[in-house]
């Protein structure tokens, strides 16, 4: 088993005059879950499609599972997944959808039942997919990807439409796969998914890598964060906060007695201690924007209002 499932150097891909990927470097070891994030049009879908074999780089080197990829549909066996939603046929049942894939790829018949069980769809295996919810379709798409026992799993928004139970099941399946040595590359707009599943993350913006590394390092890129403070004595707490060093009291309105301050983590630690010393009880201290999301926004120059947080519709620049 090679150490790296994906090795990319200087990958460039253009569609006409649109440069979708511009000198992308990427290293993804086996047995890890790697997040791929970026704003709409960043090139994520192009990159994922390339990893599945839908296209090949115009320039640069791409190795998948140790095999160089120089033309379309030439990725090695052992790569599976979906991009822009799972490809399912609504007139067929869940089982028939999987059986078709298994038959086309020469996978054993038992892999169908196994995959259905792993995503928790055995009970509805004979129902037509047209009646499935978005979350069930996502799980069935994951099941289709699991049929060949992949060593590189490419997933685009796998948690889209999942209820908490389904999300937990999918997350568990992905984590199990990684533990068994499968490399998983996961694209998502939901930073909580990325945070929960990924050990490393690559952030794309306008076709270029603006960050690649461990999640903890990405969180550090967020700089000062805004925190929401709810205390037992709001008036006194405000005066303490306004006097604190390296803390900025923001004017943002809140719907209760809470207020918002901005500062780095060490400064917030000191503020917390001062509030306690002043006899003020801390009822809530939480970042207004999660650190990963804040880092995302800081690195991509985006604004919170421009970043979808629920069921995003990713129409990347292919």
């Amino acid at each position: 088993m090679q150490d790296r499932a994906i090795r990319a150097r200087g990958i460039t891909k253009s569609f006409g005059e649109v440069v979708a990927l511009d000198g992308v470097d990427l290293d993804i070891p086996t047995g890890t879950v790697h997040g791929l994030v970026g704003p709409n049009g960043a090139g994520k879908t192009t990159l994922l499609g390339m990893l599945l074999g839908l296209s090949s780089p115009d320039r640069g080197e791409l190795e998948i599972l140790g095999c160089p990829v120089r033309q379309d549909l030439a990725v090695p066996d052992g790569v599976a997944g979906f991009v822009d939603g799972p490809g399912l046929y609504p007139a067929l049942t869940a089982r028939k959808n999987l059986r078709a894939v298994a038959a086309l790829r020469g996978y054993p018949a038992w892999s169908v039942e196994d995959a259905l069980g792993r995503v928790g769809l055995s009970d509805v295996a004979d129902d037509a997919v047209r009646g499935f919810s978005l979350g069930m379709r996502q799980r069935l798409g994951l099941a289709a990807a699991l049929l060949g026992d992949p060593r590189l799993l490419v997933l685009d928004e796998p948690s889209n439409g999942l209820d908490p139970a389904g999300k937990r099941q999918v997350h568990g399946t992905i984590a199990d796969l990684a533990a068994q040595g499968t490399a998983v590359i996961l694209s998502s707009h939901r930073m909580d998914d990325v945070g929960a599943l990924c050990s490393e993350v690559t952030l794309l913006a306008t076709g270029r890598v603006v960050f690649s590394g461990p999640l903890s390092k990405l969180a550090a890129e967020s700089g000062d964060l805004d925190y929401r403070l709810l205390t037992s004595d709001p008036t006194h707490a405000r005066s303490v906060a306004s006097a604190a060093e390296e803390i900025a009291l923001l004017d943002g309105a809140t719907d209760d007695d809470a207020f918002v301050v901005r500062g780095a983590v060490p400064a917030m630690d000191r503020l917390g201690a001062e509030l306690v010393r002043a006899g003020i009880a801390l009822r809530e201290l939480a970042p207004v924007t999660p650190p990963l999301e804040a880092a995302f926004l800081a690195l991509t120059g985006d604004t919170p209002s421009e970043t979808p947080s629920e069921t995003p519709s990713d129409e990347d620049a292919r």
Partner: peptide
């Protein structure tokens, strides 16, 4: 979570073959 999958043939990194025409049809 379902039980661990039985052992199955592992895929290699070999160049892939297209699905057969008969199966595609």
């Amino acid at each position: 979570m379902s039980a661990p999958a039985p052992a199955r043939p592992t895929t290699s990194g070999a160049a892939p073959l297209p699905a057969s025409f008969a199966r595609t049809l």
